[in-house]
Amino acid sequence: MTREATFNGFVSLALLLFPLWAWWADEPFMITLATKVAILGLAGVGLNIALGLGGLVSLGHAAFFGIGGYAMGILASHAQSYAPLMEWPFLIEGTKSMPIIWIVALIASAVAALLIGALSLRTSGVYFIMITLAFGQMLYYFAISWSAYGGEDGLSIYVRNGFPGMNTLDPIQFFIIAYVLLMIAILFASRLARSAFGLALNAARQTPVRAETVGIVPYRLQLVAFTLSGAITGLAGALFADLNRFVSPTMLSWQTSGEIMVFLILGGTARLFGPVVGAAVFIILEEILGDFSDYWHIHLGVLLLLIVLFARGGIIGLVAGEEKRHA
C-alpha cells in the first residue's frame, strides 16, 4: 500500500467513526457536520472527474448541485401538497422517496451537464472557465425569478424524504446513507480513472495532439466526463437539499462553485480523497474560525492562498508526498 492509500483508509475510517462517537456522546450536531462533509465531499468527487481527470476547470458546477437540489425540492413539494407535477399528457406525481429523487436528480443534472458541456467544450482553457461560470449565473438568475418554486425564497420541505427501511430523520441514519453514497462514488471514480476511458481521457488531457493521432476524440471523451461529473454533483445537491430540508437559488450561485473547487485544492487536486479531506478541513475551519471572528473569510483566503502558492498537492500532498498528478 502506498502512503496515500493508507491515508485514504484512515480518512474513510475517521469520517465513519467520528459521527458514531458523536452519536454515542449525544452530540447530534456533530453528526450533521459529518454528514455535511460527506455530501460536500461527494459534490467534490463529482467535480474531480471533470477537473482532476479531464483537466476541465469548471467554475459552474453549482448549476448541477442546484439542479439536483431543485429535483428534490420540486418532487417533494408536490408530494407535500398532493398536487401532481403534471396531469397531461400523462400523470406525474411528486414523491418523497429518496431513491426515486436521486435517479431524477442524476438524470436532470446529467442532461444539463450534457447541454452546457456540449457548448462549453467547443472552447478550452480560460474560455471554458468563463463560459461555465456564465451558464451557472444564467441558471441562478432563472431560479430567482422562477416564482412557481419559491424564487429567491426557495422551497422548504418540512419532513426529510424517506428511504425504505430507514428512519432518515435520525441524524446517524441519514449520515450512513450519505456516507455509503460517497464511498460508492469514490469507488466509481477510482474505477473510472483506471478504465480504458479514464486512460484515454488522461492522454487527451496531457498530450492532446498525440491522443488525436491515435484516434482519440477529446471532445467526446470530455463531454462524457463532464456529464458524469455533473450527474454526481447533482446527486450531492439532492442530498444536501435533504440535509437542510430546504433548497434555494443560493445553491446555484457562483460562490458555491468556488467553494466546491476550494475543497479540491485544500485536499489535493486529482487525489481520490482530495475533495473529502478538503470538505472536512473547510467545515472544521468554518466552525473554529467562525467562532472567534466575524471576519473569518480573511483567514480562509490567506490559508487558501498559501496552499495554492506553496503546497500544491494540498493536504494529501503534504501527507503522502508528491505523487502522480492524476487519480
Binding site: 473547487m261 476550494v262 480562509l300 483566503g301 490567506v302 492562498l305 495554492v308 502558492l309
Partner: peptide
Amino acid sequence: VIRRLYKRDHLDQVLATFALILIFSEGTRY
C-alpha cells in the same frame, strides 16, 4: 501574489484569485 501564478495552470489562478476576493471583501468590511 499574481506574479507567482503566470506559469501555473488556470486552476491555480482561479483559486488564488478567489482567495484574493475573500481577503479584499472581508478586509474592506473590516
